[in-house]
Simulated scan of single mutants.
Amino acid sequence: MRLSILDQAPISSNQTAAEALRESMELAQAAEELGYIRYWIAEHHDLPGLACSAPEVMLGYIGANTIKIRIGSGAVLLPHYKPYKVAELYNMLATLFPGRIDVGIGRAPGGSAEATNALSDNFLQQVWNMPSSVKDLLYFLDNTIPPEHPHAKVSASPVPTVAPIPWLLGTSKKSALLAAENGLSYAFGQFMSDQDGFEIIQLYRNHFKPRKPDQVPEVILTVSAICAETSEKAMDVALSSLVWGLQRKRGEGQEGVPSIQKAKEYFQNEREDLLGEMRQGIIIGNPHEVAQSIQELQDKYNADEIMIVTITHSPLDRIQSYKLISEEILSK
C-alpha cells in the first residue's frame, strides 16, 4: 500500500502561526523518514486555526528541508488565479526540486465570501470556466500550447527537466469527469464528502482518456485518521479535532485546536449522541484498528494510494499517529 499525507497546517491553541508552519515542515521531514511517498499542504484563506494561505511558499521551505519525498499543493484553488502564473510557480519549484513536485488543483474558494472577493473578481464565473482553465494550465505544464492559442508565444519559464505532475482534487462526479477527460490523476476527498465515492471513482476510471502515452488512471483516496497506542488514547487525542470541528461549525474555535483537557470540558455540556455523530467519517483507534479500516477503504474504492489528514492539539501526537500507521501498514 502507498501512503501519503495531506497537511492542513492547523494552529493549536498554544501556538503561533509561525510555530504551526514550522511543525508542518517537521511533519514533512518525519513523513519522509517514515516511508510516506507524498506530502501535500492545503490552501486556505483567512480561516481561523489554519496557517497556510500560500502552498507555493511553504513548498519552497519544505523542499529545501527534505530530500526525496514528493511535495505538492492540496490544492491550488485555480479559480482565484491565472493558469499561466500557477504553471510558472510550480515549474519554478520543479526546477529547484526535480522529480518531486505535484500540482493539486481544486475549485473551492478556500475561505469566506469576503476573502474570496478580496482574492479575485468574478469567482463564480471562474468556477464556470474551470474546464478551460484546467486545459490552459496543462498546456503550460506540458509545454504543448497549440499554435492557435492566444498565449502560444509564451512559455511558463523556467521549464524544468521533469515537469510537475498535475492532479485534480474533488468530491463529485463533475470533478471526476473533468479529471478523466483531461488525463489527470484524481484525488477523491473522502474525509470531506458524503457522496458515493465508489461510484465517483469508477466514473473517473471508466471515462479516463490518456493525455500522454502509457498513461493510466491513478486514484488517491484522502481519509481522516487519528491513531494512538490504545483505542482509549486515540479517542482522547481525537477529541481536540472533533471539538474544534464543532466549534468552527458554530462560528467558535477562533483560538485554534483546543487541548485534550479543554476539549473534554467542552463536551461536558453536550448531548451524548453528538460525539458519535462527529466521529462519522474519521478513523480513530489503535494501530491494528486504523490499519484494518484503511485497508478496507482501499479495497472498497480500489484506490492506488491512501492520503491521510490528521489534526491533533499536540504536534507530537500528530507525528506519533502517522508513525504508528506507517509501522503497522508499511512494515508488513
Results as ranks from 00 to 15, higher is better:
Pro10Tyr: 10
Pro10Lys: 03
Ser12Phe: 03
Asn14Pro: 03
Ala18Gln: 10
Glu19Leu: 12
Ile37Pro: 00
Tyr39Met: 02
Ala42Val: 09
His44Tyr: 02
His45Thr: 13
Ala54Ser: 12
Ile62Ala: 04
Lys68Thr: 15
Gly72Trp: 00
Gly74Phe: 10
Tyr84Asp: 03
Glu88Ala: 11
Met92Glu: 06
Thr95Cys: 09
Ile105Ala: 01
Asn117Arg: 15
Ala118Met: 14
Asp121Ile: 15
Ser132Phe: 09
Leu138Pro: 05
Val159Trp: 00
Pro160Tyr: 08
Leu168Ser: 11
Lys173Tyr: 03
Lys174Tyr: 12
Asn182Pro: 08
Tyr186Asp: 07
Gly189Glu: 02
Gly189Ala: 15
Met192Gly: 01
Ser193Ile: 08
Gln195Trp: 00
Arg205Cys: 03
Asn206Glu: 11
Lys212Gln: 08
Pro213Ile: 02
Asp214Thr: 11
Glu229Gln: 14
Val237Trp: 12
Trp244Ala: 10
Arg248Asp: 00
Glu255Arg: 11
Val257Pro: 01
Asn269Gly: 00
Leu274Thr: 15
Gly276Asn: 14
Gly276Met: 09
Met278Arg: 11
Arg279Leu: 13
Gln280His: 08
Ile282Ala: 05
Val290Phe: 03
Leu297Val: 12
Gln298Phe: 01
Asp299Val: 13
Asp299Met: 10
Leu316Phe: 14
Ile319Phe: 10
Ser321Glu: 10
Ile325Arg: 06
Glu327Val: 04
Ile329Tyr: 01
